[in-house]
């Protein structure tokens, strides 16, 4: 089972790892990925960002992506946390933790979850720059990254 949380508040990576590892001794590797708010987009300086989401469906989609990852790799657990609301450059946006007996499964599953989350989880970024605010447009490159996992 993987833990999925969609929340406004920040998260603590060490506490999240401790929460799922607990006293287990069968875990050989932990992979974590943390996404942060960058202060630039191309040549634009980002002042602030707001993440909008579809409550209910966001959790459902993240759970579905985690389920697929668990069917594909021998994971011993994991966590996905995605934040929403107003964020500043440097803030944490997303956390993926994967646990497995051997590192390959943990690395590949974390990468798979991130690639699918980008294109399949209903979240939308709005950036505030000196010249105004705009919705971030989806990148074709992200769709291709997600599709490369299809066998």
């Amino acid at each position: 089972m993987m833990k999925v949380l969609v929340q406004e508040q920040d998260f603590n990576i060490a506490a999240e790892i401790a929460d799922i590892v607990s006293k287990r001794t069968d875990i050989g590797g932990i992979v974590t990925f943390t996404g942060l708010v960058r202060d630039f987009h191309g040549s634009n300086k980002i002042q602030k960002m707001t993440l909008e989401h579809f409550p209910g469906m966001a959790e459902k989609q993240l759970e579905a992506i985690c389920k697929t990852a668990q069917e594909r790799w021998p994971l011993l657990g994991g966590t996905v946390i995605h934040r929403y609301g107003p964020l500043n450059p440097g803030d944490q946006i997303v956390l993926v933790i994967t646990l497995s007996a051997h590192r390959e499964a943990a690395f590949d599953a974390a990468s798979f979850i991130m690639d699918w989350l980008k294109t399949d989880a209903p979240f939308w970024k709005k950036e505030e720059t000196l010249s105004g605010t705009h919705w971030v447009s989806a990148k074709d490159a992200d769709t291709l990254k997600a599709e490369k996992w299809q066998k």
Partner: peptide
Amino acid sequence: VAVNQLYVNFDHVISEKDEIAFFPPMTGG
């Protein structure tokens, strides 16, 4: 488009009791 929180195509058949959501391509992560 999502009908009852599932992604669908534009030719998806809808009924009065559906919840239909419209949004742009996702940009989370």
